[in-house]
Simulated assay, not measured.
Amino acid sequence: MNGGPRPVGLVSVVMPARNAETTLAAQLEALCAQTYPDPWEVVVVENGSGDGTRALLRRWQRRMPRLRVAVTEEPGVNRARNLGCRRADGEFVLLCDADDVAAPGWVAGLVDALRSSPAVGGALERRLLNGPVALAARPPKKSPALLDTFGFLPYPAGANCGFHKELWSRLGGFDESYQGGGDDTEFFWRAQLAGYRLAFAPHAVVHYRHRGDTRSIVRQSYGYGRSHPKLYRDFAAHGMPCSRPGDAAGAWWALLRRSVDLLGPADRRAALLAQLALRAGRAVGSARHRRCYL
């Protein structure tokens, strides 16, 4: 029996793109510079943009023959991912975002990991594309790893992950009811609970772009917070731990003590407002989904 690497057919990169005119070209340039030598394609899902994203994609199709474009007028990142996966012809599907920049070995790194695991996540590098305000609001980890925010199961970011298309099909795709947060977490938790192994690909690096202005940071953090009770509603029975009231009270007290930061430098103000928005989102989500996760 041959013990060499598993042969791989076509690989598909699926990328949602909504109002991405200012960042998309940099990501497409990065995909053109990939070192992966075997056949692969790019499927960009134009997701109801109101800017010049669609026109930019038409120009890039003339330059990038392996680029295909799918269009949906309905917003929602999981709706776009599902459409992209349906249109993808590859055995392996890799996901990235239109506002990030993939390192040259990104495709090769994820494909190598997918030879032995049905689902993988890569590393997020957070410093190259972000200024001090964005980094204060979402500080980088000391070392790259899969995310583990909830003390339950690890998961990759949807901005840097991959899976066998067969897995996506068996799971019924991404849950399109998740919007604003939890969209990638839910899928990879469901995969692991169904018995699929998740691996980490440290050499598959994406330079990850945070929201850069305080208003956008707060909006995103609030959306993340609103999704957490929904995740708890859907996964508590599988072992996702609840948030302890004492921890939530302590977090609110700590934020109150930092209220002076609202008058301080922009980075400290953004960091505080991001945490306040996350906690407020959790409170609203708890009421909406009738599950207390504060």
Rank of each mutant, 00 (worst) to 15 (best):
V133H: 02
F163L: 14
E74C: 12
P132I: 08
W60F: 13
E91N: 09
A98T: 06
A157D: 13
F152L: 00
L128C: 13
G162T: 07
D89F: 11
N160F: 05
K141F: 11
F150G: 00
R63F: 09
A80W: 03
E125P: 06
G122Q: 02
E74F: 12
S117V: 10
A136E: 03
M64R: 08
V107T: 04
L146Q: 00
N130S: 04
R87L: 15
G90M: 08
A159R: 10
N130Y: 04
L135A: 02
A88I: 06
V77N: 00
P156W: 03
T72M: 06
L83H: 05
K142A: 15
G131K: 07
P144K: 00
V69K: 02
R79K: 14
N82R: 11
V111S: 08
L114E: 01
E91G: 03
A70P: 02
Q61K: 14
A123P: 00
E73N: 12
K165M: 10
A145L: 02
H164C: 06
S116M: 12
A88Q: 05
R87G: 09
G122S: 07
G105W: 01
L146H: 00
E125Q: 13
N160H: 07
F163A: 10
R127N: 12
A103Q: 12
V93L: 14
A113G: 09
G131R: 05
G131F: 10
G131D: 04
V77F: 04
L67Y: 09
A88H: 04
G105E: 04
C96K: 08
A159K: 08
A145S: 15
A103M: 10
G90Q: 09
R115M: 08
L128D: 14
P140R: 01
P139H: 00
G122V: 05
Y155L: 04
K141Q: 13
R86V: 14
R115I: 06
A102C: 15
W60K: 07
R68H: 12
F163R: 09
R63L: 15
E73L: 13
G158D: 06
F92Y: 15
N78K: 03
C85R: 10
L153W: 00
A119R: 04
D100S: 13
D112N: 13
R86Q: 15
V107K: 00
A102N: 12
A88S: 14
N160G: 07
P156I: 01
F163H: 13
A137Y: 01
A108S: 15
P156E: 02
A137M: 04
G151S: 00
H164K: 09
R79H: 12
D97R: 05
V71R: 11
E91K: 05
K141Y: 12
D99N: 11
R63V: 13
G158F: 01
L124D: 03
P144I: 02
P132T: 11
G158R: 01
R79Q: 07
G131S: 06
P144W: 00
A145H: 11
D89N: 14
H164R: 14
G105D: 11
P154E: 08
A88G: 08
A102G: 07
P156H: 03
G158T: 02
T72H: 02
V101K: 04
F92A: 11
R87F: 10
K142M: 10
A98K: 06
G90D: 08
L146E: 03
L94E: 00
L147Y: 12
C96R: 05
G105M: 02
L129T: 09
